[in-house]
Write a protein that binds this DNA or RNA. Structure first.
Length: 972
DNA sequence: GCAAGGACGTA
DNA sequence: GTACGTCCTTGCA
C-alpha cells in the first residue's frame, strides 16, 4: 500500500496567492483558487506515475479554525487574519473539486488537517504501508520516518528548484538541525510566530537544536537547565519551562483522530469523466475540461454542466414566472440546497463568514492620528468599511457623539474614543477622559473618507448614524445599510443587530445593558470606560461587516436588488433629512388644550363615580368591568382572551344605546379626553428639541410588514383628526413664521390600487369618471340610485369597500356594521357577484401565500408570511386576510416611497422651495415660504401622481389633493 | 423595573 | 376584517 495524503490547505493558499483572481463568466462566482486547485491536483496524479504511484489517496482539509489547541492555549493562531472574502466562498468548491477527481476529501470538526494526516500516516505505516504527505508545512516534518516509510513531497514550484522535492530525514535535519523524531522538541523551544506558538522567548531554531542535541529532549533539558553555562539562556529556560511544555503540546500532532474513513476506503478510484467533466463545465473551465477530456479519452460534449453547481441563465420571463423562480431560489437557499449559482455563492459566503470566530480582545483602540490614518488607508484600499457610532442617546437629533468604530474585515475592527468622560460621571458630568483622540482631528481625517462616494460605508441603521455624523460635520456619501438589506430580503422579522447576529452569525453580542445598566441608575455611553466601550463598539462594526457580506450576497439570488436599491437605499437619506428638519409645534396651544381636557375629564370622572356609586380608577378596564358586569349586573358582557370583562369602546357604546347605561357613555367620553391629553397635549411638548425648537420624529423604515413606514418618539402618524377635540391638536402643528404648511394626500389610493390589481372594470370606470366610489358601490349592490341615497346605505357600502381591502370576513363586517353575521355574509356574496374580479384576486393571493409563502407588491417587494401553512386554523385565516391586504397596502406604500425619493430633486428642478417634513402613509406634509403654494402644489401633486411611472402604468387615475394653511388642521 | 394586556389614536 | 405606536394598569420579580 502506498498512501498519498494531500494537505488541502497548502494547495488552496498556494492556488489563491499565486494566481490572478478569476471569476466565473456567467455570474461572477470567484473560482480562481478552484481552477488552480484542479490544475495542481491533476498535475500531481500525472507526476506520480511508476514506482511512486500511490494505491490510496485522500485530500485532507482544515474544517474550521478551532481545535483542541485553542483550549490549550487561547492565543494559538490568534493573529491569523480571516480568509479573504473572495477566497472564503471557494472553500466548499475545493471539496467538490476533490470529489470530482474521485478522491475523498476529508475534514473533521475540531481537528486540524495536520492531525488527520498524522493519524492516517501512522495507521498506514502500522499496516505495513508506505506514506507520502504532499505538503510544505514544516509542522508535518515530525512525522517523517528514517526508514522512508513516511516521506513528504513539496510540489510548490520554486524558482531554481526541481518541481518535485522529496523531504526526508536529511532535509529535516537541514531545517531543524535534528532528526525528525526530535522536531517537536525543537519547536517547543523555538516556537512559531505564524501559528503563535510561544516557545521560549529569545531561543531560535539554532539554539534549540543545539540544546536538544545535547540533552536529548525537552523534559531532560528542563530538568537539567541549571547546568547551562550561559546565564541568560539558563534563566530564560527556567522562567519559561511551562510555556515550553505548552508549546510542545501545541506542535505535537495527534494520532488519535477518529478517522471518518477506513484506510481501505481511500483506495484509488479511476477518474470518472461523468463526474469530473460536469464539475469542470459547471465551473466554466473550458481549457482544463478539454485537456482532461482528451487525457481521459472522453468526449467533453457527452456531459452537461452539473446543474447543482452551474450558473443559471437569467430568464426574461413574466412577472408570475419570475415570482416563482424567486420562490424556488428562496426555498433552495432555505434548504441549503444549491440551485442557482448565486444561491450557492450566498450560501457559501454565509458558511465561511459564520466560521470565523469573534475575538473581542483582538480589536484595536485608536487614540492617535497616525493609527487612524492607517485604518482609513486600509478602507480606501479595500473600497469598503463598516462604521458604527456610539452616542449618548437614542434620539439622533439630541445625542452627542461618543465614539466611532470601523471594521475592515471580519475580526478586524477598531474603536475611536472621542467623547468619553472621566470619573464616575456624577451630576457634574465628569471631565474629558484620558486616552482619546481630539474630536476635531478625527473629524478632519474621517471627513474625506465618509464624503467619498467611491468608498462604500456600511452601517447598521444608516439613518441614525448619518443624523449624528452630519451634525458633527461628517456627511456620508456612498453607503449600504444592513438593516435595510435585511428588510428588503426578510421583511421586519429581524429588527435589531442582536437578532441578526444571533440568526446569521450564531453570535451573542455584548448586551448594551452590560455597559449602561438599566432603569434609574442607567449611564450614558460617554460614562462607559473606554476599554469596555472599545469591545462593544468595535464588535458592532465587526458584526455589521459580517452581516453585510452575508446579506449582500443574497440580494441577487433572491431578487431583492431592485427593492433594496431603488426603494430602500434611496429613501434612507430622504428620511434622514425629514427627521432632521422636524416640525414646529405650538406649546401654548397644547398647554391650553391640556387644561381644557383636564377640567372636562375631571367632571366626567366625578360623574362616573357618582353613577357607579363608588370611587374607582376609570383608567382600569379591570375595575370598570367588575362594576359594569359584576356590581351593576348588566347583561351582554363578553370576556377577553385572558378572561377579563371586555370594556372596549364598542362594548360601552352598545351598553349606552341598548341598556341605557349613562355610565358607559361617560367612560367613553372620559377615555377620549384622557387619551388626547396623555398621548398628545401633555406628551408632545416634551419632544420639542431645545436645540432646534422643533419636534423630530424618528421614522422606522424596516418595521412594517407591508413596506409602510412607522413613526415613533413621537408617533406623528396618529395625530387625531376624527373628533372635534382631536382636530384641535392638529392646530398646534404650525408652519415656522413666514411659512405655510402644505398637506398633499393620495385620494382613495388603496381602493384605486385594488381596482387596478384585481382589474375591476366597474370600479375603474367609477374612478375614471370621478364618481363617489362608495355611493357607486352602494348603488351597484343595493340597486339604489346615487341621487338621494340614504346615508346609511352609503355607510354600509363604504364599510364593505374597506372590508375588501382588509381581507373581508362575514364576522368582521357584521361586527363593524352591527348587523347579524348572515346578513353580512349576504352582502359579501352580492359584492362578489357584482365585482367578480375581487373574488379571483382574493383566491389568487390565498393560493400564492400557501404555495410560495409570500405575496408581492406591484413594485416587486416581497411580503413574507412564514406561517402561511400553520396548523392553527385561526392563524391561517389571519394570514389569508393579511395576504389579501398586503399587496394593496404595500403597493400604496411603495408608491409614496417613490414619490418621496423623487420629491427633492423634482422640486429642485422646478425651482420650488419646499421642505418635506412628514409622511402619514398616504399624505406628505411640506413647509413652504408664505405665498408660494400656488407654485408648489402643482409640482408636488404631479410628482406624487406620476410616482409609479415608468415601472407601472396604472389603469386608473391617481389623484392627489393638496391644500396650504398655517397649521396642519387647516391644511389637511 | 419590566412585560403583558387592554384600549385607542392614525391610514 | 389590514398595518402601526403609545399610554395606562396590572402582576410578577
Amino acid at each position: 500500500m502506498h498512501l498519498l495524503l494531500v494537505d488541502g490547505s497548502t494547495y488552496i493558499f498556494r492556488a489563491y496567492h499565486a494566481l490572478p483572481p478569476l471569476t466565473r463568466k456567467s455570474d461572477g462566482l470567484p473560482v480562481g483558487c478552484v481552477s488552480g486547485f484542479c490544475n495542481m491536483l491533476f498535475k500531481l496524479t500525472e507526476d506520480l506515475k511508476g514506482e511512486d504511484e500511490p494505491t490510496h489517496m485522500a485530500v485532507i482539509f482544515d474544517h474550521s479554525a478551532k481545535s483542541f489547541r485553542n483550549e490549550l492555549y487561547g492565543e494559538y493562531k490568534a493573529h491569523r487574519p480571516p480568509a479573504p472574502e473572495d477566497l472564503a466562498p471557494q472553500f466548499p468548491l475545493t471539496r467538490d473539486a476533490t470529489r470530482a477527481f474521485s478522491i475523498p476529501p476529508i475534514e473533521l470538526e475540531g481537528w486540524e488537517a495536520d492531525d488527520i494526516i498524522a493519524t492516517y500516516a501512522c495507521a498506514a505505516r502500522r499496516a505495513g504501508g508506505k506514506v507520502t504527505i504532499v505538503s510544505s508545512d514544516k509542522d508535518l516534518m515530525q512525522l517523517i520516518e528514517p526508514d522512508g516509510s513516511i516521506r513528504m513531497l513539496d510540489t510548490i514550484p520554486r524558482p531554481g528548484q526541481p518541481p518535485l522535492r522529496w523531504i526526508g530525514p536529511e532535509e529535516v535535519f537541514a531545517k531543524f538541525g535534528v532528526t525528525p523524531d526530535k522536531v517537536i522538541e525543537v519547536q517547543a523551544l523555538c516556537g512559531d510566530s505564524v501559528d503563535n506558538v510561544p516557545g521560549v522567548p529569545g531561543i531560535g531554531v539554532k539554539t534549540a537544536a543545539e540544546l536538544i542535541n545535547t540533552y536529548g529532549d525537552l523534559e531532560t533539558l528542563l530538568s537539567r537547565a541549571e547546568e547551562i553555562k550561559q546565564p541568560a539562556r539558563r534563566q530564560k529556560l527556567i522562567d519559561n519551562a511551562d510555556l515550553a511544555r505548552i508549546s510542545k503540546q501545541l506542535v505535537t500532532l495527534s494520532q488519535d483522530v477518529p478517522l471518518p474513513l477506513e484506510l481501505d476506503a481511500l483506495a484509488r478510484q479511476p477518474i470518472d469523466p461523468g463526474t469530473l467533466i460536469p464539475f469542470l463545465k459547471a465551473m466554466e473551465f473550458t481549457t482544463i475540461t478539454k485537456r482532461l477530456a482528451a487525457l481521459l479519452d472522453a468526449d467533453p460534449d457527452a456531459w452537461e454542466a452539473d446543474p447543482a453547481l452551474a450558473a443559471k441563465p437569467v430568464s426574461a420571463v413574466g412577472f408570475d414566472n419570475a415570482a416563482r423562480a424567486e420562490a424556488r431560489a428562496a426555498r433552495h437557499a432555505a434548504d441549503g440546497k444549491a440551485d442557482a449559482p448565486a444561491v450557492l455563492h450566498a450560501h457559501r459566503t454565509h458558511e465561511a463568514i459564520r466560521a470565523i470566530p469573534f475575538d473581542l480582545d483582538a480589536y484595536t483602540t485608536i487614540t492617535d492620528p497616525e493609527t487612524l490614518a492607517a485604518w482609513i488607508a486600509g478602507a480606501r484600499q479595500q473600497g469598503h468599511v463598516a462604521i458604527d457610532t456610539e452616542t449618548t442617546g437614542l434620539d439622533n437629533q439630541a445625542a452627542d457623539l461618543v465614539g466611532i468604530s470601523l471594521a475592515l474585515a471580519p475580526g478586524q475592527a477598531a474603536y475611536i474614543p472621542l467623547g468619553h468622560v472621566s470619573g464616575e460621571g456624577d451630576i457634574f458630568g465628569g471631565g474629558h477622559a484620558e486616552g482619546q483622540m481630539e474630536m476635531k482631528d478625527a473629524i478632519a481625517l474621517l471627513a474625506p473618507l465618509l464624503a467619498d462616494p467611491s468608498i462604500l460605508k456600511i452601517f447598521h441603521n444608516f439613518k441614525y448614524d448619518h443624523g449624528v455624523l452630519c451634525r458633527f460635520g461628517l456627511p456620508v456619501e456612498g453607503f449600504d445599510d444592513t438593516i435595510l438589506l435585511s428588510y428588503a430580503l426578510d421583511g421586519p422579522q429581524f429588527n435589531t443587530m442582536a437578532e441578526l447576529a444571533r440568526h446569521w452569525l450564531g453570535h451573542e453580542g455584548i448586551p448594551i445593558k452590560d455597559l449602561l445598566g438599566s432603569g434609574k441608575s442607567q449611564k450614558t455611553f460617554a460614562q462607559v470606560p473606554i476599554p469596555d466601550a472599545a469591545r462593544y463598539g468595535a464588535e458592532d462594526a465587526d458584526i455589521t461587516l459580517r452581516l453585510w457580506h452575508i446579506l449582500k450576497a443574497r440580494l441577487v439570488p433572491e431578487n431583492a436588488t431592485a427593492v433594496y436599491e431603488t426603494l430602500e437605499r434611496k429613501l434612507a437619506p430622504v428620511l434622514a433629512r425629514m427627521e432632521a428638519r422636524g416640525i414646529s409645534v405650538d406649546r401654548q396651544i397644547l398647554a391650553r388644550l391640556s387644561g381644557d381636557f383636564a377640567q372636562r375629564a375631571a367632571a366626567f370622572e366625578a360623574e362616573a363615580h357618582e353613577l357607579a356609586g363608588e370611587k374607582f380608577n376609570l383608567g382600569s378596564p379591570k375595575q370598570l368591568g367588575d362594576i359594569l358586569f359584576g356590581k351593576l349586573g348588566l347583561p351582554g358582557g363578553t370576556r377577553t382572551k385572558s378572561g377579563q370583562w371586555a370594556t372596549g369602546a364598542g362594548v360601552l357604546e352598545d351598553l349606552a344605546a341598548r341598556e341605557n347605561v349613562p355610565l358607559a357613555k361617560v367612560i367613553v367620553d372620559w377615555r377620549g379626553l384622557t387619551k388626547l391629553k396623555g398621548t398628545y397635549t401633555d406628551a408632545l411638548p416634551g419632544y420639542i428639541n431645545p436645540r432646534t425648537g422643533r419636534v423630530h420624529t424618528t421614522y422606522s423604515q424596516h418595521s412594517v410588514l407591508t413596506g409602510r413606514l412607522s413613526s415613533n418618539d413621537p408617533n406623528l402618524q396618529n395625530i387625531p383628526i376624527r373628533t372635534e377635540d382631536g382636530r384641535k391638536i392638529r392646530t398646534a402643528f404650525v408652519a415656522a413664521p413666514g411659512n405655510e404648511l402644505v398637506s398633499a394626500d393620495y385620494s382613495q389610493i388603496e381602493l384605486r390600487i385594488l381596482a387596478h390589481i384585481a382589474d375591476i372594470q366597474a370600479l375603474k370606470d367609477a374612478f375614471e369618471e370621478g364618481l363617489d366610489i362608495h355611493a357607486m358601490t352602494a348603488s351597484e349592490m343595493f340597486k339604489v340610485p346615487i341621487e338621494g341615497m340614504p346615508s346609511e346605505i352609503r355607510r354600509r357600502a363604504k364599510a364593505i369597500n374597506f372590508g375588501i381591502i382588509y381581507g373581508i370576513s362575514a364576522f368582521g363586517l357584521a361586527n363593524q356594521l352591527g348587523i347579524p353575521r348572515g346578513e353580512a355574509g349576504d352582502y359579501i356574496k352580492t359584492y362578489f357577484e357584482r365585482f367578480p374580479g375581487i373574488r379571483d384576486y382574493m383566491e389568487e393571493m390565498r393560493r400564492r401565500v400557501k404555495s410560495e409563502g409570500f405575496v408581492t407588491t406591484l413594485f416587486g417587494r416581497k411580503i413574507l408570511f412564514p406561517n402561511a401553512n400553520s396548523k392553527n386554523p385561526a392563524e391561517r385565516a389571519f394570514v389569508e386576510r393579511a395576504s389579501i391586504n398586503a399587496p394593496i397596502q404595500g403597493t400604496a406604500a411603495d408608491l409614496i416611497r417613490r414619490a418621496m425619493i423623487r420629491m427633492e430633486p423634482g422640486l429642485k428642478a422646478a425651482k420650488i422651495e419646499a421642505d418635506m417634513l412628514l409622511q402619514v402613509h398616504d399624505e406628505l406634509i411640506f413647509e413652504i415660504p408664505e405665498g408660494t403654494a400656488d407654485k408648489a402644489i402643482p409640482v408636488i401633486t404631479d410628482i406624487m401622481q406620476t410616482a409609479a411611472e415608468p415601472a407601472i402604468r396604472f389603469s386608473i387615475p391617481i389623484q392627489v389633493d393638496a391644500h396650504a394653511a398655517t397649521n396642519w388642521d387647516e391644511a389637511h
